[in-house]
Design a protein around this nucleic acid. Structure first.
Lengths: 254, 254
DNA sequence: CGAAACTGTGTCCCTCGGATACAGAGTACT
DNA sequence: AGTACTCTGTATCCGAGGGACACAGTTTCG
């Protein structure tokens, strides 16, 4: 499993190509969308390691090899599943400023990741993004237009938010830890080793098991606060004509 | 490959257990550390999908099945490799405040991830952390002790920073994109579809290819700014006795 | 010195991704 | 209409890889 060899050219055609005109032979019984959908259903239930060409084929009432008429291999199938699973980005909330838009955007993306835990594993390493994925990105950059951030910074914000949504979805994926307190996860590991992890022990002691798992909110608020600080500082410092204001000199932001 | 079935009990023993006393039979020719090291070398070179029990065994001059005397299976081997690859956390920079400590911490972790690209894929989904991993976490929480943040918030900061380091390592892993501009990555996809991704196109146009890939710095600065804002606000609002100040009410902070 | 326990090995099996060759179906051209 | 071409789904086969199992050799304890 996990051959990893992706046929970039074929995959590009699958993700970005047009449906192609009328062919000559017998008409296909399957569609890319149907195959991706079947794959998603399986991966949602049993994870990526439960996704086999055999099972996808069975769920579509065809032979395993029939799938290879549509998809070059497993890796490309996963890429198609990912593109279908993220779907089109939702419309931005009406009348929201950049912060409201990004807040909503991140939560929506988080939700997508939570619904498809396998998407975590499918988004490791450099890969070819699909139209939907790029459309999500477009939303972030569009929301930040006119804030005074440079193009590079706008993309960096997108990377930052995607990362946060992705990561938090991972941590809270199947809500395996009912309480976030000392009883679950790290708690049982720290117990009995308090002298080795004193700070962790102290931190875990003062946790309300009910009000935990707000890591998404917390991190998102911090990130947006940091961006807001940069935007206001940038606006106060030099409200130049909104032209070719490039990456501000000075290495590490601020 | 990627069986995914992890023997939690055995793995816990491997990660946290003591080396055990003298046994009876012939003394083992291998060590867990040696096996993990061999695995790391292979995965560093060819990625996780290049890591097979066969190859690990060959590089240690034993049979494949000999490995199973030490490690329950491939999944557990990867967990051991991860624990060994992250290693012990570096000592905090002398005389640094919480911000300096966290900044250094994140960059060090980023470096670890960059050195072992497979660690990305090995850290998806909930898993049992090892002593080293917990020691890294301890450092963050220790750095934040006395800042007025609650225990839960301190852990949330750790999650946030780990996520950022992990994500950025992924994006810039093998510096495949020499320039970050319109020529690489998204650039070629946006070109010719400017009407579909107008904001992306505008953002990509104004990018200095040389000064790109500062996403780590940018995101980290934003995150730390956000945390700093919270800390100062918390200190200004109510400098109570540093006792049981729990999660501040108000849902989405700020 | 024998028994027990542990190590490394050889062999076997199953699953899974993928290549290849073939038979049928539908379309385009004469 | 008929024929040739092309595309679809299939059956068969292969190799790689993870892991079970039984066996032989080795070391230590009673």
């Amino acid at each position: 499993m996990e051959t990893g060899d992706v046929d970039q050219r074929r995959l590009f055609e699958l993700l970005w190509g047009t449906p192609a005109g009328p062919r000559r032979g017998p008409r296909p019984t399957l569609t890319l969308a149907a195959i991706a959908g079947a794959g998603i259903a399986i991966a949602d239930a049993d994870g990526l390691e439960g996704l086999t060409m055999q099972r996808v084929a069975e769920s579509l009432d065809v032979t395993k090899m029939a799938l290879y008429r549509y998809v070059p291999g497993r890796a490309e199938l996963v890429a198609l599943m990912l593109e279908a699973a993220v779907g089109e980005p939702p419309p931005p909330p009406a009348g929201a400023d950049w912060r409201g838009q990004l807040d909503d955007w991140t939560r929506q993306l988080f939700d997508r990741f939570r619904r498809h835990p396998w998407a975590q594993a499918a988004t490791v390493g450099p890969r070819l993004p699909g139209p939907n994925e790029l459309a999500w990105l477009e939303r972030v950059v569009a929301a930040l237009a006119g804030t005074g951030l440079t193009g590079a910074e706008q993309l960096d914000v997108a990377v930052l938010l995607v990362g946060h949504a992705r990561n938090l979805a991972q941590h809270a994926a199947p809500d395996d830890a009912p309480g976030g307190g000392r009883e679950s996860g790290f708690g049982v590991l720290v117990r009995g080793r308090e002298e080795r992890f004193p700070a962790l022990d102290a931190a875990l002691r003062g946790i309300d098991p009910a009000a935990a798992d707000q890591a998404l909110d917390f991190g998102l608020a911090r990130i947006l606060d940091g961006i807001e600080a940069l935007i206001t500082a940038r606006a106060a410092a030099g409200p130049r004509s909104g032209g070719a204001a490039e990456r501000a000199p000075g290495g590490r932001g601020e």
